[in-house]
């Protein structure tokens, strides 16, 4: 636990001293700010007096999730790729650290900086609440979804980062894989009903949309937990592959 904590502190510090984090956070917050403004404008012009959840927050959460899709992989891309590029991973794995301790330190560090970014966006709904109160629990469900989505993105991003020593490849690869998972069920005519049933069950979009409507369904929560656990296992296998591949 102490060892994971030590690694966690190192990683969090690395984020906060690197310009990358501030650029990513600025892009994310700017996008979210823009979406908040434009979606609210849309609601005020076309949907005023109607349900604010369906006509504003649902749109906002969907837009925010897209902003996450392009920014969260930028946070995770360096975590293993950089260590491999620098060669520091060799030292790391000759310290008394287990693969899972290394993974936990890095995952939690990425989750922490993501939480900081996501937490900053709470300003918008809080401000709106002071202007016009609404059912906050529904918004809380939406944020719950964004949080689970972010953790899933981090899990997938870490896995792709563990496969390569190029941060760019890790970043682009993560966005690609996440987008595929995200959009797999968009074209319903792309397969038979049976196939599409399975595709939908694995599609991120399907599971996130309930949260943005203010619904927390245990199936959706389990989906995100499953994806994180699944990619965590893949990452641990990937880290262990040095044992037989002989490269770092």
């Amino acid at each position: 636990m102490n060892r994971t904590w030590a690694l966690y502190k190192k990683e969090v510090r690395s984020y906060f001293v690197s310009p990358l984090f501030y650029v990513v956070a600025a892009v994310f917050l700017s996008l979210c700010g823009f979406f908040f403004y434009s979606d609210l404008n849309f609601f005020l012009q076309f949907g005023f007096g109607m349900d604010i959840i369906g006509n504003f927050f649902q749109l906002l959460f969907a837009d925010m999730s897209r902003a996450m899709l392009i920014t969260v992989p930028l946070l995770t891309m360096r975590l293993f790729a950089e260590e491999r590029k620098l060669g520091t991973i060799e030292l790391l794995f000759t310290y008394p650290l287990r693969e899972r301790e290394v993974y936990a330190g890095k995952f939690c560090a990425a989750a922490t900086v993501f939480l900081v970014m996501l937490g900053a966006t709470l300003l918008y709904p809080i401000h709106l609440y002071t202007v016009q109160p609404y059912a906050f629990t529904v918004v809380a469900a939406g944020y719950c979804g964004l949080l689970l989505l972010g953790l899933m993105f981090i899990g997938v991003g870490l896995f792709v980062s563990s496969l390569t020593d190029s941060q760019v490849v890790a970043g682009v690869g993560s966005v690609g894989l996440l987008f595929l998972l995200w959009s797999a069920s968009w074209n319903e005519a792309s397969g038979s009903d049976r196939v599409m049933g399975v595709v939908k069950a694995f599609s991120t979009f399907e599971h996130f949309s309930n949260f943005s409507k203010g619904l927390i369904d245990s199936t959706d929560v389990l989906y995100f937990v499953f994806v994180v656990v699944f990619f965590t296992n893949l990452t641990l296998r990937s880290l262990e592959s040095r044992r037989w591949r002989g490269r770092r």
């Binding site: 690694l7 510090r13 690395s14 690197s18 060669g87 030292l91 000759t94």
Partner: peptide
């Protein structure tokens, strides 16, 4: 690994961390 101190060949360390802080990290993981 607890018994060993290892200096890999042409070691490249984390470039963005100050020396003393890096050594603290190494001590903590050990």
């Amino acid at each position: 690994r607890r018994l060993i101190g290892y200096l890999p060949e042409s070691v490249v360390l984390y470039p963005d961390i100050p020396v003393a802080r890096y050594l603290r990290f190494c001590g903590e993981v050990k």
